[in-house]
Simulated scan of single mutants.
Amino acid sequence: MTARLVIMGPQGAGKGTQAARLAERLGVPAISTGDIFRANIKGGTELGVLAQSYSARGELVPDEVTNAMVRDRLAQADVEPGFILDGYPRNAAQVDELDAILGEHGVTLDAVVELTADRDELLARLARRAEIEGREDDTPESIARRLDIYAEQTAPLTTAYAARDLLVQVDGIGGIDEVTERLVAALGAVVPDAV
Rank of each mutant, 00 (worst) to 15 (best):
M1E: 08
M1K: 12
R4F: 13
L5E: 05
V6K: 05
I7R: 03
M8Q: 12
T17H: 02
T17C: 02
R21H: 08
R21Q: 12
R21G: 03
E24V: 11
L26D: 02
G27Q: 07
P29D: 08
A30G: 05
A30R: 13
S32T: 14
S32K: 10
T33V: 07
G34M: 07
D35S: 11
D35P: 08
I36A: 11
I36N: 00
I36P: 00
N40H: 15
I41K: 03
I41S: 01
T45H: 07
E46P: 02
E46G: 04
E46I: 06
G48E: 02
G48V: 06
V49R: 15
L50A: 10
A51F: 10
A51T: 09
A51P: 05
A51L: 09
Q52I: 01
S53W: 04
S53T: 07
S55I: 15
R57F: 04
G58F: 00
E59Q: 13
V61W: 05
E64M: 04
E64Y: 09
T66E: 05
T66G: 01
D72M: 06
A75C: 03
A77E: 15
D78M: 08
E80A: 15
P81S: 06
G82S: 11
G82L: 12
G82W: 14
F83I: 09
I84G: 05
L85H: 04
L85G: 04
D86L: 03
D86G: 04
Y88G: 00
N91R: 02
N91L: 04
A93E: 13
A93S: 13
L98V: 07
A100T: 14
A100W: 08
L102Q: 12
G103C: 03
G106C: 10
G106P: 08
V107I: 14
T108I: 01
L109G: 05
V112M: 05
V113Q: 02
V113F: 07
E114P: 02
D118P: 04
R119M: 11
D120C: 02
A124G: 00
R129F: 13
R129P: 10
A130V: 11
E131T: 14
E133D: 14
G134T: 12
R135N: 04
T139Q: 06
P140S: 01
S142N: 14
I143T: 05
I143L: 06
A144K: 12
A144E: 13
D148T: 11
Q153E: 13
Q153R: 10
L157I: 14
L157G: 03
T158L: 11
T158G: 09
T158V: 11
T159I: 12
A160I: 13
Y161C: 08
R164M: 05
D165M: 01
L166S: 03
L167Q: 02
V168C: 06
V168H: 02
Q169G: 03
V170Q: 00
V170E: 01
D171G: 07
G174R: 03
G175W: 11
G175F: 11
G175M: 07
D177G: 14
T180A: 15
E181Y: 06
E181P: 01
L183D: 05
V184T: 09
V184W: 08
A186G: 01
A186L: 05
A189R: 13
V190P: 03
P192D: 11
D193E: 14
